[in-house]
Design a protein around this nucleic acid. Structure first.
Length: 302
DNA sequence: GTACAGGCAGTAT
DNA sequence: ATACTGCCTGTA
């Protein structure tokens, strides 16, 4: 009897800490955001037209600040309104994800500024993470606004019209290569109002995705990333090469025909739909755990 | 030198 | 529908 109570208590506290132990550092380093850097004991990030700072204190509690100040910023960015208990319970119907949720405590989805998110993932096409960071860093230095925090100069993420004002050659000079044309197209779509993120936030997944796909340079993968990371579509399930590998390795039964880590657009649609159906309304959360796991297993630092 | 990295559009079958 | 190609750029 005594033993039972003890085990039960451990079990409960274990679950509680699992639900509460959000770790920004793990999440920041999980490949969903790019413009964060550690200086001293603090992490600094670019969030649209703000610089944010996150610091873990010695006693364990965390301190967050936005410059200029924004009291709701922390809640929004770190998705503190999400019912993680419900989310974990839902995605843990899958045994592998169930294990990963426990293996990587603290990993969460973050909420990004839509325009920063779109530009980031357009830059991400056919390259690696250090390169993506370099491109975005250069974009901020060239077209963003300087903000000084703790005596360090940071640059905000440029607005769509900031970027739209630049020529393709100027964008190219940021190291974007052939992506410059797509960046310019995206900036134009936003600046002219053809792409309206506020509208897309309130429409369903299918409708919002259709709109994003209209933009030159935006395909299935980029659209799903933007939907998941910035437009409140937690059921979006982006498939990059890492997720394709995960699906091919652990979820072959999701698709009738053979597939590898290079998938055709048609295979993408089939697989993504099956995965959304299987993992449920929080499929995007499951995706993040799978993604992180695949990269960890491959020994990727970035 | 050359293969490769978190895709995409264009073109030809 | 599917296959194939080229594409900027830095690193191994």
């Amino acid at each position: 009897m005594k033993k039972f109570n003890k085990d039960r208590r451990n079990c409960l506290t274990g679950l509680q800490s699992l639900y509460q132990s959000f770790d920004p550092v793990v999440s920041i380093n999980s490949g969903q955001v790019f413009l964060w850097e550690k200086r001293g004991n603090s992490w600094y990030g670019v969030h649209g037209d703000r610089i944010v700072r996150f610091a873990q204190m010695i006693d364990g509690h965390a301190e967050f600040a936005a410059f200029p100040e924004d009291r709701l910023c922390e809640q929004k960015m770190f998705r503190m309104g999400d019912d993680v208990r419900a989310i974990f319970s839902e995605i843990s119907r899958d045994p592998l994800v169930r294990r990963l949720v426990r293996t990587y405590p603290g990993l969460r989805l973050m909420r990004q500024e839509p325009h920063q998110c779109l530009f980031s993932f357009v830059c991400a096409s056919n390259t690696n993470i250090p390169m993506i960071r370099r491109m975005l860093y250069t974009l901020t230095r060239k077209f963003g606004r300087p903000v000084h925090v703790d005596g360090i100069e940071f640059f905000t993420f440029p607005s769509a019209s900031d970027i739209n004002r630049a020529s393709i050659d100027e964008l190219r000079a940021c190291g974007l290569g052939y992506r410059a044309k797509a960046i310019k197209a995206a900036a134009g779509a936003i600046a002219t109002g053809q792409l309206d993120f506020d509208v897309l936030k309130s429409t369903g997944y299918e409708e919002a995705k259709k709109e994003l796909l209209q933009v030159y340079g935006v395909g299935n993968k980029i659209a799903d990333c933007v939907l998941l990371f910035s437009l409140e579509k937690l059921d979006a399930f982006p498939i990059d090469v890492w997720i394709a590998r995960a699906l091919a390795g652990h979820y072959r039964w999701l698709h009738k025909k053979k597939f590898g880590d290079k998938i055709t657009p048609h295979q993408y649609e089939q697989l993504s739909e099956s995965a959304r159906d299987y993992f449920g309304r929080y499929a995007g959360y499951a995706q993040q755990y799978l993604y992180y796991h695949m990269r960890q297993s491959a020994g990727k630092k970035w």
